[in-house]
Design a protein around this nucleic acid. Structure first.
Lengths: 227, 227
DNA sequence: ACCTGAACACCGTTCAAGT
DNA sequence: ACCTGAACACCGTTCAAGT
């Protein structure tokens, strides 16, 4: 069409994101700096700022890129409640595999084009269980909160276990628990680390989805109960 | 007792934490640096490292300190399910009031002495609803995941709303939603920002607690149903 | 429009030395 | 044992100038 005015670009946003992805994959998110990225791309730090607003935005672009490449759509069960569970678990499985995710989740939501299919399925399952569209949005959000929280707490726990000199502090708190004052906690204090290391994501998710859909009367294509 | 050997300390860990708290309260967590803290305390950056392991640890100490000062125990309702809800909401209310919390939650759990009373009450409520102690730990964790996730996602949303030039990106994704492919999402796309800005923490929490306790037979001091 | 170079205003932490 | 000074190895971003 029309001749673009000004100097032709030497690097592109796609190239910036791609190079950033390579650095993060190979060396971890800590090694991704604007200077390092510029060097890798054969340019200067400031050239990057013509293609991404700032570093935080770059991280969000990286997450969207990751989602587009890695979020594979699972087979959908017929039961709407189970559908919500399966889809949420698929989101979590994909995101949990990418260790730098926590950096981005604290900066922004996952709400790229690639992710919307998953949102659609969760909302659809909830609506089929009898929730109104607005309630389904809030239901989706509840599932998302639970999933984000699980990923972040798990990542923190893993990091803590990696720095293996650290146990002392938490363990001391638990060792000093007064069984008269805190009988329930005292009962499990010794096994706390072991119990919280278990992966119970699915159990909690099922409970949440059950709770969200209990009491709503199903409709919208699913089985229907007597009114 | 015995005379301590070596040079007497000029600064204490308590003084370090207290000064750090003042900086964070007055100027935000971004302004808390080891150099700034040292200057404020009238010492050098490296002196701090004799009292706290590193900056991350300092942030955790700060959270524990905050919890000890601000987590006020709520009145406990008789109904065990409602007790879980009230106690979780009390945790969340306190932590949500402290905007730097997300920095720490991604680094470690909240598991200070002050927090254990809240853990106790949640476990107690769940056990009274019929959960076994191990299940109550996992139930508590599910509530904690949900609460952490809600706080982090909400904080990110608020930050996004503060940088008010940013809407374009998410809004464009939603504006381009294909109603044939994603009918449920399309239905609410226009109102997404508005719907997700609503505070529905309690609704989701109630659903989760209902789901966690449904099916378990109550006992352990509460009302009992026919077996 | 796009890119460069230099500079600003910082970081957390290690190390070796002092008291 | 506790503290200091200097240094290491960096950051993200602004600004003014070039093409």
């Amino acid at each position: 069409m029309s001749q673009r005015k000004g100097r032709p670009p030497r690097i592109s946003r796609a190239e910036v994101v791609e190079t950033a992805r390579r650095i993060v994959d190979e060396e971890g998110v800590d090694r991704l700096t604007m200077r390092r990225l510029a060097k890798e791309i054969g340019s200067t730090p400031m050239a990057l700022y013509h293609h991404v607003r700032d570093k935080e935005r770059l991280l969000v672009l990286l997450l969207d890129d990751y989602a587009a490449r890695n979020m594979h759509r699972p087979e959908l069960p017929d039961d709407p409640r189970e559908r919500v569970v399966v889809v949420a678990a698929a989101i979590r499985r994909t995101l949990a595999a990418c260790p730098w995710i926590v950096e981005v989740l604290t900066a922004d939501d996952l709400m790229s084009e690639a992710a919307l299919w998953f949102v659609e399925q969760i909302m659809d399952g909830l609506i089929e269980c009898g929730l109104a569209p607005d309630e389904a949005v809030h239901g989706y959000r509840a599932v998302w909160y639970y999933t984000v929280g699980e990923m972040i707490v798990r990542a923190a726990g893993e990091r803590r276990r990696a720095d293996d000199d650290r146990p002392t502090y938490r363990e001391r708190v638990f060792a000093e628990v007064d069984a008269a004052e805190l009988p329930r906690v005292a009962l499990v204090a010794r096994r706390w680390a072991e119990l919280t290391a278990e992966d119970t994501y699915l159990d909690g998710l099922r409970a949440l989805v059950d709770g969200l859909t209990a009491g709503a009367r199903p409709g919208g294509g699913g089985e229907r109960r007597t009114p």
